[in-house]
Design a protein around this nucleic acid. Structure first.
Lengths: 124, 124
DNA sequence: ATAGCTGCAAACGGTTTGCCTCACA
DNA sequence: TGTGAGGCAAACCGTTTGCAGCTAT
């Protein structure tokens, strides 16, 4: 563990959900390349996880955060949800298909409550 | 509907799961830019849908294809699955959160049967 | 004439690569 | 003294933008 690696891991823990760019900003003086290489390493070590929360850069977080993500297509809001919501899906995929679902990478896209309300109102 | 647009829609229907690049290859003479612009248009019209099946380019398909996708992190295999698998998840998110899930954009990542077997075997 | 579609080239964001230097076992 | 980590610059992939020319009203 080099100083750079410690700082990058620290930044991921502090920021919660962060893109490589945001992490790089948080650890000034460390090159963006090093951020990428270190995130890859930390992920192999099981210390961080990433998920794709939209069309842009992936979002990294400490692996202790176990929640799954709901992302609104319309406003872009990201909401955390309980991983238990997918227990039965997980079980079905495993028993019927032998497919082992990766919870940490699980993202559901759709429209959030506020944006659904708004489109209903607009239809009047 | 211009000739280019007809050909692009035709290619999506023929290819099933295709990236913009693959579609572009299939309709030679049509610029890649036009492919992007047309896919956006066709998606607004509800004729095609896209989903993200890995780290690269998105995959477009005709909107008649209703299945959801299982993607293996290890070997990259993409398997179609029944949309009914997520009925209860969909219902829970709507009733508990007011969140309306977008099935067409739904992808589950994990490890497929073959890759799970292999890693179990390797552990011996 | 006008609006809209197309193609080309350039810019763009995010990521990876090659290479050279440095620190440290 | 050799292995690996970091920095820098350039290449890279996928995508978007600006602009000019064409086509069909």
């Amino acid at each position: 563990m080099t100083p750079q690696r410690e700082r990058i891991l620290g930044a991921v823990r502090e920021l919660g959900h962060a893109t490589p760019e945001q992490i790089s900003d948080a650890v000034s003086g460390v090159d963006l390349t090093t951020v990428y290489r270190t995130l890859e390493l930390l992920e192999e070590l099981g210390l961080v996880r990433h998920a794709h929360l939209g069309h842009g850069a992936p979002s990294y977080r400490p692996s202790e955060d176990q929640h799954i993500h709901l992302v609104c297509h319309v406003c872009g809001a990201v909401v955390d949800a309980s991983p238990e919501l997918i227990n039965s899906l997980e079980e079905q995929l495993r028993s019927e298909r032998g497919f082992v679902l990766d919870r940490s990478h699980f993202t559901v896209f759709g429209r959030c409550h506020a944006c659904v309300e708004q489109s209903v109102a607009a239809a009047d």
